[in-house]
Design a protein around this nucleic acid. Sequence first.
DNA 1: AGATGAACATGATGTTCATCA
DNA 2: TGATGAACATCATGTTCATCT
Lengths: 122, 122
Amino acid sequence: MTEKRKPSGFLLKQRAFLKLYLITMTEKKRLYGFKILDELREEFRPYGYRPNHSELYKALHDLIKDGILKQIKRKKEGAEFQEVVYYQFVDYEKAKQYKRQLKAELDRSKAIIEKAIRDNFA
Amino acid sequence: MTEKRKPSGFLLKQRAFLKLYLITMTEKKRLYGFKILDELREEFRPYGYRPNHSELYKALHDLIKDGILKQIKRKKEGAEFQEVVYYQFVDYEKAKQYKRQLKAELDRSKAIIEKAIRDNFA
DNA sequence: AGATGAACATGATGTTCATCA
DNA sequence: TGATGAACATCATGTTCATCT
């Protein structure tokens, strides 16, 4: 019981991919969940990738549990008066470390895919 | 009920990846499941990817259900007398069509990963 | 031990429901 | 309607068990 199973090491998971973007987006500008989702969907539309809202919030909550981000509830910027949830770093070193880790994962995944293209479509 | 859910369109799945390799390996030489698994593990060891046996067999069975491959039980080549399961094409056109489809998936996945590298590690 | 396969268990992800402004 | 979140459902994948040589 509670044997943790080990992944086979195929491509990186969507969750991790989203967490990476969330960190980078938090570095760049103040955004809240729904807006981030919008941007990502827009950006990845040409790639046929459309993340769903739940997965994004789970990624966000993961980062909080990881001790990397924290929430800040604020009135939405602009004319409206709705509260939304912004994020900022709790531990930026940890964030950078996570990014480094993800860089390795991305490189690894890329290498696997390129190998597959070579092997199967030489 | 039986609402089929649609994937978000993130990276290609391991199952499809293995099916692609199985087709290509069947084109190249006569092999049986366990041997294929061995080869793949060997090839992907440097990439940290180690497929497990069940997933490989499921991929094989999928290709049979798809009408692309069929099984041929034979004595193992060499000095031994154990029966193993070799594969050959039932419908090679279909196989090539599947490969074309997977090529598109690989290209798409590669593009997503490259974009992520650009966006997060500029 | 090598080989194939199914059953089972868990992890990853998608859909739906609830709530609030 | 936009926004957040949890509950729920299902799919993808990994581990174990059964069987045979």
